[in-house]
Design a binder for these strands. Structure first.
Lengths: 191, 191, 191, 191
DNA sequence: TATGAATGAGACTTCATTCAT
DNA sequence: GATGAATGAAGTCTCATTCAT
């Protein structure tokens, strides 16, 4: 019971204030438990953070793995994956924010490693789809991991924009912009 | 004299450790000045940070403004801008790292505002180019700010990948991947 | 059953880490019982400590009382008592360590009192033997309790040395050094 | 200024309550400085402790080295050294208490090492005097370091007794008891 | 212009203890 | 008899900031 409340409070606070600014004191207060309880359930701050990120990413991975139908065409696969990622990115925006923007510095090396590993798995996943496209000749010869990094960057950038200006653009617009850009670029006509 | 040393040391340290992890103590030591000097030249930590980011971004903006030839075609403009951004991103990777990854949280609101403003200027700049393309019919009807956000995200993602795997891909590959994706997407053939 | 395991674990840990450094958590783990069990069997940490020291010292006292033959000569009595103390000191070095080095500070007054009392009993015991010697004229006129304190200090110092350098000196050498010093000093020839 | 006040307060408190029981908070209060000042002048608690012990022992060593006249006879040297040690032990009883009773456990390994080293120097010093006596044939063949350990233990035990019962025995009695015991034992007449 | 000793709020963490089961 | 989740007071330490010089 206590543990769950702590995790929830921590997700919110880490997302709201970032790793260093979110204090254990504040997490305890928000969770409605005593400060000591945090240390009963978790080794320390960094392990609490790690737990949240790991569990979160695992949930996302599980959902994506389940929902993506790999028998679809490359086109469909890309549209699906972009759609799912956008949905997840926005649904779990707190978590996404943590994973994409709070990884940089000051977190224990070990935790950072695990998170990078999980992030890397996703990269590999998308790179795999692209590689398939290259093999079948649908996609020009590119470094698939670089391309996947670019696509994730774009997802990140667009979702960030959406969250900060969510009255000016719809979720569907975001999805279709990304998909169509991946599929046929932004510029459509040669001059 | 002292001020310059402080700024240099601060850039290095902020980039290396992030805003919260870089301490005034360490900055002073690295700069080879006394701690009190930091407060002689700057109001406090956040203002020091702000100064660095502002000056840095202004330098970048100035260079981009100067080098981009707006009389070129949309194609060329996009290739140029992508090229310049990649170069700058990699050349000033310390600063870029700060601006793109350390902005999120825990910095004084006022500072954050100014930085966001500067970032926003860049977005507007690129969105303007894209809008021109839309007006001329070279670009399909998109939300140009969303698109610019996506492109910056892709730049960020790709440069990050490059910095972490710089033996597997060349700077030129990064540039041409982004340019060509913007221009004609990743998937080139319909199925 | 549980109680016995706790006592054993506590002896080991108190001896290994000292009173303050040995945590109830660690004792519980080492004993293989739940933390709550410690408080089922003992009022708290200090009472657990007291129990151990009391029981330990009582065992030692009992053994010494039983083995010392008070009908022997002063010489023999001193040799015997030194021999027994050295043996006990080394055999129960954990406990001895606790009693001689961890008593000083930070333990509840009441517990400290009882331990001092027990220690005092030993002092009285040895002082009694010496007083007998004084009465019989074998020993010069000294403050017997002071002398006994000095002898215990010497025992402590020598045994400590032995435990830290036990390859350079034998247990027998320790015993005979102390005995002979008590009996005839270190310097044997006037100059 | 601040530093000196801290050191004084720390000596008193460490001696009074022992290493673990003396809190940095309390030291700061007793010294009349802010908590942060402790960490401005010292790396941390253990280094503060180390500083005190090291400086204290060095002072003692210096005094002893200066006052002991090595051209005296073994008899005189021993009487002198015992006299000086007793004086110092009682004068610096706080410090002595720390060094002899608080070394055991829970202090950082590095600090412990240095203190043991300093203690060891004293042991070596006294062992050297005894070795001289052995060489000259005034002292029977003993392990000089063991003997020195025993003598220090006796000093410790007797001074402790004196401090706890200082109305029943004089300082001079303590000195002469130890000296005469070293010189000719406690038991003076064979039976 | 520059210094550096001093500060104090607040951070993370430990741990003896309690209590409902 | 025994458990273990939960507690909260207290501890060590960090660090941006101030100020007399």
């Amino acid at each position: 019971m206590s543990r769950h409340k702590i995790v929830q409070a921590a997700i919110e606070l880490f997302a709201l204030k970032g790793y260093h600014q979110a204090s254990m004191d504040e997490i305890a207060i928000r969770a409605g438990v005593a400060k000591g309880s945090l240390y009963y359930h978790f080794t320390g701050k960094s392990q609490l953070f790690q737990t949240i990120v790991s569990e979160g990413l695992r949930q996302i991975t599980t959902r994506i793995d389940a929902e993506l139908n790999s028998s679809a065409s490359i086109h469909e696969q890309i549209q699906n994956i972009v759609g799912y990622y956008v949905d997840l990115f926005l649904e779990y925006s707190d978590l996404a924010h943590i994973v994409f923007h709070e990884l940089s510095n000051g977190i224990e090396e070990e935790v950072l490693m695990e998170i990078r590993q999980l992030r890397n798995n996703h990269l590999t996943y998308m790179a795999g789809i692209l590689a398939e496209g290259v093999k079948l000749g649908y996609i020009r010869d590119i470094d698939c991991r670089l391309a996947a990094s670019g696509v994730f960057g774009m997802l990140d950038g667009c979702c960030d924009y959406f969250l900060r200006n969510n009255s000016q653009v719809t979720r569907q617009q975001v999805k279709s912009f990304i998909s169509s850009t991946v599929l046929s670029g932004i510029v459509t006509k040669n001059v």
